[in-house]
Structures are given as structure tokens and as C-alpha cells.
Design a protein around this nucleic acid. Structure first.
Lengths: 199, 199
DNA sequence: GACATTGAGACAGTTTCTGTCTTAGTGTCT
DNA sequence: AGACACTAAGACAGAAACTGTCTCAATGTC
């Protein structure tokens, strides 16, 4: 009960995030103003600027980071308990690809700048996605391969998923489990030390 | 072939109207800029301002008027051939009410100012709707009642439809044909000279 | 009462939008 | 070819909106 500084600002932050969500859904990144967000969140502009010093850019960046973490949190829950590295990688790729194909809003949310889609993804934007993905997925690979190897393979996996999302190939659909499994066996697993373990 | 002054501006006007449509659908009245519309229509800003001198207000007014006429044109087609005044009025009311309930965009389109819904309908806005409705519907009543009487009854009908749309009554739904027929018999027809004709 | 937090709104600086204008380019008629 | 009508592109000033910071009063907590 002794949470020190009075009421927790988490509720307000959540309200603001939610407001950004619905505002962006309604008008798109470019058309949304801070007043729109404040109004939707039922919060004063002063409060928003106090919680996110730096204003619009900082707020939107926070929202995107939050979205990114939500995405990988949900994904990690889905792939947890995989009994082999192959299974883990396949599930990661399939789920991520399906989500991206299914939710067109997601790609925009994960992108770096407002109005920028994954298609215009900058180096820093890609880096961040890879970074967050590594942080969330790597722990799950502990049972199969060393951390350094995991970071490397997750990095490659991310770039592949994004690349195939941006320009889909007629010969390979990462949303298809069988095709993905075959791909993982051919290109990803041979590079790891786990081949001897699982085979 | 001798249409005198080169290419007809109708195509461009149509493109602009269509652009306004999709822009408003995407962003709403308030968020749309003239550049958005020009860009969507694939037309220079100079062209828009030349076709609609007065700019934004004039253009939007023209779009609304066009929508209004489209609406009543479609409605007139639906009620044409009614064999009695009762049938005509019932059909008008039911169709208009259904359309309003069905297409939430419509009410906004018919309203006067951008962002203003029928709920904020100003006197002039209501007047215009009544005026257009009268112009479109009155001719159809020629077979049954004199024009002056028609104008009066159409006026009353318009206001009722709008009123019941704005604040629906639990006891009367104008989208329901039977209820509307009963209503027309009770309140509208007795005021006309047609009672003796059809009864 | 001391403290922390929020809402409301004033404020200047910047950006965006509007509406008008000029210019150059295109296609059509004579 | 030359006159004509129309358009795209974009410069431009003035108006409007947005941003980010600030102050102050109101509220709720210890």
C-alpha cells in the first residue's frame, strides 16, 4: 500500500496509449494532433507533455515501442514450450508473418516515423525491431543453443521475415508452416550447433 | 462533336467530387485539406479553385448539394409509379428513414457545415433539405393533390422524418412500413383534399 | 497544512493551410 | 502555323492550426 507517490500514473499512461491507438485508427498518424489525443484520453495537454517530455515524437515513439513489446510478448507466449529449436523457429516465423499479413495496422505501428510504413523502414527502425525481437526470443533458445548463437540466428530470422513481408515471394510463404519448416531446416538450422542435438 | 470549348469540365468535376467523397470517408470533414483532395483527384489546386470559386466552403457546399440531389433522385426513382398519395408518402418516408439509418455518412453529407451532423442542423440547413425535397417530390403528387398542398405536406413530411431520425421514438419507427402507413393515414392524409379521391 | 498531481488555458514560435496569382506546357480549333 | 482554352506546377502572403512551455487554481493524499 505504500506506493509512495500517490496515485499511479499507469492508468493515465494507458489511457493515453489507448487514445493514440483509436485516434490513429480513425485519422492516421499524419492527421492526429496532440489535442485529439488529449481529448480522446480525457486528459489535459499538460499531463501528456509531463508524462512524455519531448512531446509528440516522444509519445509516438513510446507507443510504437509499447506496440512492439506487446507484439513480441504475445508471440513469445505462443511459441513457449517448443521442444526443439526447429519448432521454435518455425513457430516464430509463421506467427510473425501471419500477424503481419493479417493486421495491416501492425506494420505501420512498428515502423519508425509517423506515416512511414515498414516499406520505408530506416536502418534505425530495422535495428530496433531486431533488438527487441532478440531480447524477447533469445531467452527461449537457452535450452538449445548458446546465447551468442541465438542472437545471430534471431537477427537473421527477423530480417528474413520482414523482407518476405515487404516483397512476398511466389515460391515461399512464411505464413505456411510446412514451407517454413522446410526453409528453416535448409537455411537456418545448419548454421547452428544444435543440429547434432536434435538429430 | 462541336462542343465548342474543348474538353468538358464535367469529368474533372466528377473526379473532384469523387475525391472529396473518399477523402472525407478516410479522414472526415475536419481533417481534409484542399491539397488532399487535389492530390486524390489528380488535379491541380488551381483547377479546383477555378471550378469552385470561393474555395473550400463553396466546394463542400457543392458536394453536399450534389449528394442531396443524388439522394432525392434515387428516392424519386423508388417511389415513382405510386398509385395513391398514401402509397407515395409511405414509400417516401420509409425509404428516406431506412437510408438515413443505414448510411451514417449520409446524414453528415446532408448537414450544412463540415463536421456538423444533422443533430446540429441549422435553420438554413433544414430549409435547404426541405426545399430540395419539395422540388423533387412535389411533381409526383400532381396526380393526387394540387401543388400548393403538396408543398405543404412534403414540408411537414421532411421535418417529421428528420425529427424522428434525430431522436427515434420507441413507439414509431419510420423504417417500418406498416407503422408508417398507419401514421400517414392518421396525421398526413386527413389534411389533404385527396381523402375523398382515394377513399 | 504540506505535498503531489491534474485540468484549464495563456502564450510565442513554428508549421500548415488557404486562396490568389503567374508561368509554362498541352491539345484543339481555324 | 497561330489563336485559343485549359491545365499543372508552384510561388506567395495572410490566416489558421498545432506544438511545446508555462502559470495558476483545483483536487486529492499523507
Amino acid at each position: 500500500m505504500t506506493f509512495a507517490t500517490s496515485t499511479p500514473p499507469r492508468d493515465i499512461e494507458a489511457a493515453i496509449f489507448s487514445a493514440v491507438d483509436s485516434c490513429v485508427a480513425q485519422w492516421g498518424w499524419d492527421k492526429v494532433t496532440m489535442d485529439d489525443i488529449c481529448g480522446t484520453a480525457g486528459v489535459s495537454r499538460a499531463t501528456v507533455y509531463r508524462l512524455f517530455p519531448g512531446g509528440r515524437d516522444v509519445l509516438f515513439e513510446a507507443v510504437r515501442l509499447s506496440k512492439l513489446e506487446d507484439f513480441f510478448t504475445a508471440m513469445r507466449a505462443h511459441v513457449e514450450g517448443s521442444e526443439s529449436l526447429e519448432e521454435l523457429l518455425v513457430r516464430c516465423i509463421v506467427i510473425a508473418s501471419s500477424e503481419l499479413q493479417h493486421d495491416e495496422h501492425l506494420a505501420m505501428m512498428l515502423a519508425t516515423a509517423p506515416g512511414e510504413t515498414l516499406g520505408d523502414l530506416t536502418v534505425s527502425g530495422l535495428d530496433r525491431i531486431v533488438r527487441v525481437a532478440t531480447a524477447f526470443i533469445t531467452p527461449l533458445t537457452d535450452d538449445f543453443i548458446p546465447a551468442t548463437e541465438a542472437a545471430h540466428i534471431v537477427d537473421v530470422m527477423c530480417r528474413l521475415v520482414i523482407s518476405y513481408y515487404l516483397s512476398p515471394s511466389p515460391t515461399l510463404d512464411f505464413a505456411n508452416e510446412d514451407a517454413t519448416r522446410s526453409f528453416v531446416r535448409t537455411f537456418l538450422l545448419p548454421s547452428t550447433s544444435s543440429v547434432v542435438v536434435t538429430q
